[in-house]
């Protein structure tokens, strides 16, 4: 009996999920999943719209599904969201936004190698 109810529950969940985003192919559903994983819930302090149960997160996910159906590319959708809510909404960080973070260790490494090399070459035998 326990297994029967579990099966019914599982089937209900599967039916509900497929009804939510009708008209999306498997590939489009994957894209929806990817975008939703990387869009921050505007109402929450942290977390993406996939993990959030806030009304706005559900609305945004539906809007993104609609935009995918209308033929928008992932970058266009991220741009629409950023234009509306700012880059706070985008959980994907762009390298150009963190240039110091990426380049500083590299710069320190290069300078250190340079100094050690110069020292080694000039070191009297």
């Amino acid at each position: 009996m326990k297994y029967f109810f579990s099966l019914i529950l599982l089937l209900t969940l599967i039916c509900q999920t497929s009804q939510l985003y009708e008209g999306l192919s498997d590939k489009q559903l994957e894209r929806l999943e990817h975008i939703s994983e990387n869009i921050r819930c505007p109402k929450c302090s942290y977390g993406n719209i996939n993990s959030s149960n806030a009304q706005i997160s559900r609305d945004l996910k539906e809007e993104i599904a609609q935009l995918i159906i209308e033929g928008y590319q992932d970058d266009d959708i991220f741009e629409i969201m950023e234009d509306r809510y700012g880059n706070y909404i985008n959980l994907q960080t762009k390298p150009k936004d963190n240039l110091v973070l990426y380049l500083l260790p590299l710069a320190i490494l290069v300078i250190s190698i340079l100094f050690v090399t110069i020292y080694t070459i000039k070191k009297p035998k």
């Binding site: 505007p42 509306r84 809510y85 700012g86 880059n87 706070y88 909404i89």
Partner: peptide, 8 residues
């Protein structure tokens, strides 16, 4: 600081 929601 850009880590805050943009108003309209």
């Amino acid at each position: 600081k850009t880590a805050s929601i943009k108003t309209q």
